[in-house]
């Protein structure tokens, strides 16, 4: 992953009309009821978790301090590119 690509994607996605287009995201389940013991994190993670770690490290190196909005933007970029085999927003450009 390239930091310039990541920043360009964050900028591109921020300009989409989110009030009327689909915006992919990831949410992490969290059980605060403590009804089960916390699971061990699998060694090596998943493709998405590795991409998340890499993107966060790149953005932190570029910007210094991150904000919650930066984290959301990283997840938006990952979801945009990982839900399907092509950018989710590109589907809008396909002929009906």
């Amino acid at each position: 992953m390239d930091i310039d690509w990541l920043e360009a994607e964050i900028e591109r996605l921020s300009k989409l009309p989110n009030a009327e287009v689909g915006v992919p995201m990831f949410l992490v389940p969290e059980d605060l009821s403590m009804s089960r013991p916390p699971a061990d994190v699998p060694e090596g993670g998943t493709e998405i978790s590795r991409a998340f770690d890499e993107a966060i490290a790149l953005l932190q190196a570029r910007r210094g301090t991150l904000t919650p909005r930066d984290i959301a933007a990283v997840i938006e970029v990952l979801a945009e590119h990982h839900l399907l085999g092509r950018p989710f927003s590109s589907i809008a450009a396909e002929p009906a």
Binding site: P24, M25, F26, P29, P42, G45, S49, I71
Partner: peptide, 20 residues
């Protein structure tokens, strides 16, 4: 960041598409 990284590593993250 740590919680999200761990959550994504477990492989049960929920994929969603937000529409308004």
């Amino acid at each position: 960041v740590r919680d999200l990284s761990d959550g994504l590593a477990w492989g049960n993250a929920i994929r969603l598409v937000n529409y308004h």
